[in-house]
C-alpha cells in the first residue's frame, strides 16, 4: 500500500483555483513521515489513478461552499452533495465529483478521502491568489496537518 497522499488540485492560472497547488508546493518542502505530497494540477479522470492503491488521501481544492473567501471546511466527499451534471461529463471539467462518480460506477476501491475545501473569491484567468485566500494559506496548511493525525 502506498503512503497517504496529500493532493493539491486546481489550476494556478485561474486565481484562487490554484490554492490546492500552492498548499502542495508549501507542504512539499516539509518532511512529513509516510506522506506523499503531490501538486496534481487538473488531472481530470486521472485522479482515479492517483488515488488507487492508497489507504488514505487528503485532497485540497477550491470549493464553492457559499462561505466567505478564504474560509476552510473539512468534509468527506461522500457526506456532502457535490454538484455534478452527469450529462456534462468532460475531461477538463472532470473534477473530484465526476472522478468519484466514475469510480463508484466501476466499483473501484478508493482510499478514505478527506477533502479540505477553501472558498475562493475569484476564479478566472490570473496567476495570483486573491488577498483573502492568500492570507488563508497558513490556516489551510495547518488544517491539512491536523487531518494527518485525525482518524478519517
Amino acid at each position: 500500500m502506498q503512503p497517504t497522499l496529500i493532493l493539491g488540485l486546481g489550476n494556478p492560472l485561474q486565481a484562487d483555483d490554484g490554492i490546492g497547488c500552492r498548499v502542495a508546493q508549501e507542504l512539499a518542502t516539509r518532511a512529513l513521515p509516510d506522506v506523499e505530497v503531490m501538486d496534481g494540477g487538473t488531472p481530470g479522470v486521472g485522479l482515479i489513478n492517483l488515488l488507487q492503491g492508497r489507504a488514505r488521501a487528503i485532497i485540497v481544492d477550491a470549493a464553492e461552499m457559499q462561505l466567505l473567501p478564504g474560509e476552510v471546511r473539512v468534509f468527506d466527499p461522500r457526506q456532502v452533495h457535490l454538484d455534478r451534471a452527469r450529462e456534462q461529463f468532460s475531461l477538463h471539467h472532470c473534477g473530484v465529483a465526476d472522478a468519484l462518480a466514475l469510480a463508484d460506477a466501476l466499483k473501484l476501491t478508493l482510499p478514505e478521502i478527506t477533502l479540505v475545501g477553501v472558498q475562493p473569491a475569484r476564479v478566472e484567468w490570473g496567476a495570483q491568489l486573491t488577498p483573502r485566500v492568500q492570507a488563508a494559506l497558513p490556516r489551510v496548511i495547518e488544517t491539512v496537518i491536523q487531518q494527518l493525525d485525525a482518524v478519517p
Binding site: L9, G10, N11, Q14, D17, T42, G44, D61, A62, A63, E64, M65, R73, F75, V80, H81, L82, D83, H92, H93, C94, G95, V96, A97, L115, G117, P120, V123
Partner: peptide, 8 residues
C-alpha cells in the same frame, strides 16, 4: 475551471 461546487 474544475473547482468543486458543494452543498452541505
Amino acid at each position: 475551471v474544475h473547482f468543486l461546487s458543494v452543498k452541505f
